[in-house]
Nucleic acid binder design. Structure first.
Lengths: 284, 284
DNA sequence: AGATAAATGGAATTTAAATTCCAAAAGTGG
DNA sequence: CCACTTTTGGAATTTAAATTCCATTTATCT
């Protein structure tokens, strides 16, 4: 056989266009897999069975896992339309975190453009709220949540501490507890009256604060801890000052839109907590 | 200073034992964070806020994300007890595959835990919250929203009226307006002091109430209308008593879980409104 | 069965990332 | 305000991973 122009057909094993999404990748994999030679097929099967490993493994590790040579992995990547493994891995990595960090840039743009129409802003808050809610399921540890419910159900009185941004959360907790006849005190700081002396050793405190942390929330909670009360902390990251206090931590990562956040995730967590506590108290 | 045996105390900044689990890692991070120098703390916060990025990023990428030097990242890893970044990343990577199941899968898993468990309830609220948010974009009329923003931006003082279930909404509005230097009064009903006389003809009122409507909200709003103030109503259906008052209506259909709702949609609407008003006021 | 093309394994090379090192800057205690 | 320690930024070095290359094996076609 002589190399006539027909060879271009073979020259491009798979159009230079690499798949742009994980979905497209697996669609192409489905089409191509049967036609691949033995080792490449073997590796394809491995990838299909362990898609989650691609983002966090090296060529050598994947090769070993699939019992093929690193060079086979390389050939596979090229067969799929990528320039090499690194490019393929980039796809798998970006897909994972795309839901999250992309907001940063989008919102930055929104800010620069000046505030657009109110409904555009509303759409942003809705979108961010939905993402925050989705994320809530991963940041809240079910075991910690159960512990928090146990502690609060056992407490004589429940105290809620949280100001400024966190106040909507504590005030809603107060409403919910009141409706369920759970003895609870909202430390609202009204008239600068300090109600801390109400906190007794058998009580529990729900402290809510997000960065930048309101100092008074931290102080009051710390004193409650000294008295011997149990602490349940609703906060944003483990490095929060509340972490110091041997509190049961419930973490909420709420995305900002500009300087504000929608509080959707925090409120949902709070109300779940309250309802669970109410239910457990009535059961006893 | 000569290197006497005492130096071993400094030689091991953190016991050679690196955290064996992600949990242990974050626990140690919580303990250590406060004592870290500026840049290292800065990076610690970044990690706490973006734990999912560690597994799939390079030192350089994380460093850029946290606005620190790569060497600071390295020092941080050693401070946490790892030999270096690679070892720390290995920990995060081994844990990675557990997070892969998508939102739907996680939701299903949480629900399995038995209907009574707090996390099942949380899943319920999250799901309902997402649906409510989605709904919000269709129930809120963009034109009405724009009108509401115009009216509130023009008002001398903004009054917020809303109690019980609606109070988290109004209190968050109060917080937002305060932060943006918009003159606003939260009618909290504290001490039964009626602040209605503060409402003047050139003011505007944001009234928030959901079925079953709190009578006092309706009454106060009605009186404000008599005085001549503009009314923006955040409520649930067009048949709400507030409709009578020629108010600009912003409708939120919030789905219930049992006797409670997550308020996600209402809060999102409120904060969008507040931010838009703040922006428009500053523009004038 | 022999010739030719395709596929494979493994080593060599290149590229990129992790890690170390050091000089400059910022704090600290006397 | 000075000596001394800690912290920081950035470049230099080392290490590890990705990629290429080629000799060898395996399959295919006549």
């Amino acid at each position: 056989m002589d190399d006539t122009p027909l060879d271009v057909l073979k020259a491009a094993p798979d159009g230079g266009t690499p798949p742009q999404t994980i979905d497209a990748f697996f669609r192409r994999l489905g089409e191509t897999a049967e036609k691949l030679p033995k080792r490449l097929k073997q590796f394809a099967d491995f990838i299909a069975a362990n898609p989650d490993r691609v983002a966090v493994s090296t060529v050598a590790e994947l090769a070993e896992g699939a019992n093929v040579q690193p060079s086979a992995v390389m050939r596979f990547c090229q067969e799929m339309g990528f320039s090499g493994f690194s490019q393929m891995q980039r796809l798998f990595r970006s897909d994972y975190s795309q839901k999250w960090p992309d907001y940063a840039t989008r919102l930055a743009k929104l800010r620069e453009h000046g505030t657009e129409s109110p409904s555009a802003l509303l759409a942003e808050f809705v979108e961010v709220g939905r993402a925050s809610l989705e994320n809530l399921l991963t940041t809240v540890d079910p075991i910690a949540l159960q512990q928090a419910v146990d502690v609060l159900a056992r407490a004589e009185t429940i105290h809620m501490i949280g100001f400024r941004r966190a106040f909507p959360v504590t005030s809603y907790l107060a409403y919910a507890f009141e409706k369920m006849d759970v003895p609870a005190v909202l430390h609202s700081g009204i008239a600068n009256i300090n109600m801390e002396h109400l906190i007794r050793p058998n009580d529990a405190v729900i402290a809510v604060t997000f960065a930048p942390y309101t100092p008074i929330t931290i102080e009051m909670t710390a004193r409650a801890r000294t008295i011997g009360a149990d602490i349940v902390a609703i906060t944003d990251v483990v490095t929060s000052p509340l972490a110091q206090l041997k509190a049961i931590q419930l973490l909420v990562t709420e995305l900002d839109v500009g300087a504000f956040r929608a509080l959707s995730a925090s409120l949902s967590l709070a109300i779940s907590l309250a309802v669970s506590v109410g239910a457990q108290r009535n059961r006893i």
